[in-house]
Design a protein around this nucleic acid. Structure first.
Lengths: 338, 338
DNA sequence: GTGAAAGCGCTAACAC
DNA sequence: GTGTTAGCGCTTTCAC
């Protein structure tokens, strides 16, 4: 049989109020009473019921994280660092995987906001701010992660990739490349838009003719880089920028298989998931852009807790910066430099 | 202001009981009433409060998953398939990351069993069954995943790796290798013990002298394979078996860097995370042992829901089998063959 | 076919 | 320094 707070109260000879206050340190309790209460608790093996507590207080001590792809190491690492941060504050993490599917995201947001979590971290796959916004109860604590919208209604934690991409284009041009292709993620995402626009701006600033056909879009999931690469190779690109870690590894494999040699036959600029295997293996053949995943996760955790505790806090936008590591510079270059 | 079931009842001109029954399809409601209820619901934008519901019914519709390392692709993929399975049944997933730390596991189990989840999936890092067992309330629905104990008190879903490892040793011997090393995970884990014992048995069955020094243990986390490899190379091993995906990728990188060529200078047998980048890239130079991660996840989801619905169901042990893929056989070999 | 009302376990306002 | 007690929002028994 379940042991409740009143069983404890009875055994300790006090009221339930006192037991509650003892447990929660929420008002003064004499040393003697405190001892009796704890004695009863351990004798009965009492554990406060978390759902009763949540129900009563309205706080779940749980944060939801809407993620586009758990098995993508970029997000897995981020989940890990978010979880670390939250656990230290006594919070739990519920994961919802959308697989870059807007309907799944919609369903998950509905479910999680219906009293399951105190706040939501969202790496949204939505194409419009309105669609996302209409799902969220007014005032619900939300922090957008990695992917943002131009409407600044929610706090956000993301990465600016403009500078590293711009630089990498310049460097490719400096090396003599003229037909520079780029593979973006889903076109609707802010990350993709930002990266593509950095590319376009650099291309034209460097005096090259922008070619629409040098811009391809994958879906940021497994097995989408191949077609894009084929199309770019057909157009004799001498350099390719791959704007996400998963597609970058696939590209490397694919080129490998086709016998295309990196740095000799083609220049590759690749996003890498921090500390990834691939980064280490190819660090001397490709330029890489390394995202500060751990910092991103920790910042996201920090922000959401802040908002949960104070839902009226002003909107806050945190922008971290990716590192650019061309392959012939010393590895000691720090990823936070610009 | 929060809209509750009685607001809906009031507006629809019925009792809260009727509203509840309408929503949950739990007793007959006339067509007319039903319509009035739904009209009120959508007019007010009512969503049933999940914590009130959990509190009342005792069901949280949530499963906890204790994982040793989220950012390890093996577990990330498994989480994904578990989540898929559960979501289809209307359940949520709470993740707790232990980082192979027994204290963290202990803390997490305590927290999650205190009324947060209906059941627990555990890929335990514990060294003893007793320690794990003592944390779990009697009768609490639990399914052990990937890692098991000799005591058969809990249902489990795991992978048998005996056969593929045994076979791979035999094949190495057949190719002429005599100094065969192996790198295991944490020695306390069932998976490690099973793999090492398959190795030992094969070694002695093949007529080789067992050498204790050919057996090294890593910690199944980042950066632990290097030292093990160094030690094995020092002893002039001509083949090495690496018994988990993460350490295997690290080994490949490390050998690469040291200029050791696979299949020529050394034979490598490597566990690969299913569909991993590395598997594809090196499939023609190393023997691989592929674990059925997705099936493992789905089976785990299935089992835990079964137990949540019927906690007294008999203990059930599901054992899946890893595929052995030596590098010179056609890739069409299926991973479920023995 | 529907309603009234008890009560799940806990917290916190109020009372002393 | 501690006790009494009213609910939080929902499900469900019992009654009609």
């Amino acid at each position: 049989m379940k042991v409740t707070i009143s069983d404890v109260a009875k055994m300790a000879g006090v009221s339930t109020a006192t037991v509650s206050h003892t447990i929660n340190n929420t008002r003064y309790v004499s040393e003697e009473t405190r001892e009796r209460v704890y004695a009863a608790i351990s004798k009965l093996g009492y554990t406060p019921d978390a759902s009763a507590r949540s129900f009563r207080t309205g706080k779940k001590k749980t944060i939801g994280f809407i993620v586009p792809d758990i098995s993508n190491k970029f997000f897995a690492t981020m989940i890990e660092s978010v979880e670390n941060y939250l656990a230290a504050a006594g919070y739990h993490l519920i994961i919802a995987n959308t697989k870059e599917d807007m309907e799944r995201e919609e369903k998950n947001i509905r479910l999680l906001t219906a009293g399951l979590v105190d706040g939501l971290l969202i790496a949204s796959t939505m194409d419009s701010f309105e669609r996302l916004n209409s799902l969220l109860p007014a005032g619900f604590p939300v922090v957008l992660v990695d992917r943002v919208f131009s409407e600044k209604k929610f706090s956000s934690v993301c990465v600016s990739n403009f500078q590293p991409i711009y630089r990498s284009v310049c460097r490719l041009v400096g090396k003599g490349d003229r037909r520079i292709g780029i593979i973006g993620g889903l076109p609707r995402l802010s990350t993709t838009k930002e990266r593509i626009s950095a590319y376009q701006q650099a291309i034209s600033d460097c005096g090259l003719t922008p070619e629409e056909t040098f811009i391809r879009y994958g879906d940021s999931m497994e097995n989408s880089a191949h077609t894009c690469l084929d199309e770019l190779m057909e157009q004799n690109c001498d350099a390719v920028i791959v704007t996400n870690g998963l597609m970058a590894s696939e590209s490397i494999i694919y080129l490998h298989r086709k016998g295309v040699q990196l740095a000799r036959d083609i220049d590759l600029v690749s996003f890498v998931d921090y500390e990834s295997d691939f980064y280490q293996l190819y660090a001397n053949q490709i330029d890489s852009i390394v995202q500060p995943v751990d910092e991103l996760g920790a910042a996201a955790g920090e922000e959401i807790l802040k908002r949960v505790e104070n839902p009226d806090a002003p909107i806050f936008e945190k922008v971290l910066t990716s590192a650019y590591r061309p392959y012939d510079v010393p590895k000691s270059w720090n990823h936070s430099d610009r």
